[in-house]
């Protein structure tokens, strides 16, 4: 069975849930091989084995992390050359898409980004994408080279398939061209203690309607064990970090439940949340376009509705 390369998305060896999803998808298409680049393999090892990596290619060359994107694309190009995989799967993060882009050019291969589903097909994987702010669904295949596919978080339910991976250290010789954009400083983002925005099952977002006070949004999110997001209006006003922005120029989320509080529902915001399974909105204005999307909506003041709902939820849990 042909290998399917999965680039492991991790922070110092802590493997992200998206990687488990990719390994699960890879198993539909062939034999999953994880490509681990950077420090912390010992931390990652068990989780990769649990989710079915039959082979792990390890690249520990410290130089790979000192430069932006290009070295990882070179590593993958080398492995594609060596293993002629059935596909390469990469998480659809900003960096993931850039790695995929360079790999596609290097290997003259078709690239599909932001897949929300990948299934085996007669002539290679068939992907499903959601485009134009979620108003269209597109099925596509790669016709040239090795299918290179970036997959959005929450596109598959991770399934365990324990293995004892065969580990292979990979020697890479980076070209000078890969070493031109140096990372001179890296400040890890502060942890909020809440779930990761793109991976969370529930996301509660606040917008301009919060007036800058996110306490009600955060308390409601905590009652549901949710991640907190924000509209660009809230981010631009400096009320919440840009890393939490949902939308076209922020993160795309696709949780089981998305709650928009004090958010009008502009097209650019929708682009980041429209594929959520269930949508709830709280907004003072009954004409707000967000209500066109909702499964459940409350026309009202978020400062009254959210605390009351949080209290009722806490009571229900008790």
């Amino acid at each position: 069975m042909a290998e399917v390369l999965v680039l492991v998305d991790h922070v110092d060896g802590t493997v992200r849930k998206t990687t488990h999803e990719l390994l699960t998808i890879a198993r539909r298409l062939g034999e999953p091989s994880a490509v681990f680049v950077g420090n912390g393999y010992d931390t990652a090892k068990e989780s990769l084995a649990t989710y079915g990596a039959v082979t792990v290619y390890q690249v520990t060359d410290p130089e790979v992390d000192q430069y932006l994107v290009a070295p990882k694309a070179e590593v993958l190009a080398q492995l594609v050359e060596q293993t002629s995989p059935a596909a390469v799967l990469i998480a659809s993060s900003a960096e993931g898409k850039e790695i995929a882009a360079r790999l596609a050019v290097k290997t003259s291969s078709g690239l599909i980004t932001d897949a929300v589903d990948v299934q085996p097909g007669g002539s290679g994987p068939v992907t499903t994408q959601s485009v134009f702010a979620g108003s269209y669904t597109v099925e596509a295949t790669v016709t040239t080279g090795t299918p290179i596919i970036t997959v959005k978080p929450n596109s598959a339910a991770p399934e365990q398939a324990p293995t004892t991976p065969q580990e292979q250290a990979v020697e890479v010789t980076l070209s000078d061209a890969a070493k031109t954009a140096r990372v001179t400083d890296r400040k890890p983002r502060e942890k909020s203690g809440r779930p990761e925005l793109t991976e969370a099952a529930i996301v509660v977002s606040g917008g301009r309607g919060t007036g800058g006070d996110f306490a009600a949004v955060e308390a409601f999110a905590d009652a549901l064990g949710a991640a907190v997001g924000a509209s660009r209006a809230a981010v631009d006003a400096g009320w919440y970090p840009h890393a939490n922005q949902v939308g076209q120029t922020g993160k795309t989320v696709s949780p089981q439940l998305y709650v928009a509080a004090g958010i009008s529902g502009a097209i650019q915001h929708r682009a980041g949340m429209q594929t959520s399974k269930a949508i709830v909105a709280v907004n003072k204005d009954e004409e707000a376009p967000i209500f066109e999307l909702v499964d459940f909506g409350v026309v009202g003041d978020l400062f009254a509705v959210l605390p009351a709902a949080a209290e009722a939820i806490e009571k229900h849990k008790a």
Binding site: V142, I279, V298, G300
Partner: peptide, 22 residues
């Protein structure tokens, strides 16, 4: 093109949800 779009379908509009006034 190195990829091919096999099908594009307009997503059915979401079923109208329930909206209540507080």
């Amino acid at each position: 093109a190195w990829t091919r779009v096999a099908a594009s379908t307009e997503r059915p509009p979401r079923e109208a949800g329930q909206v209540v006034a507080d």
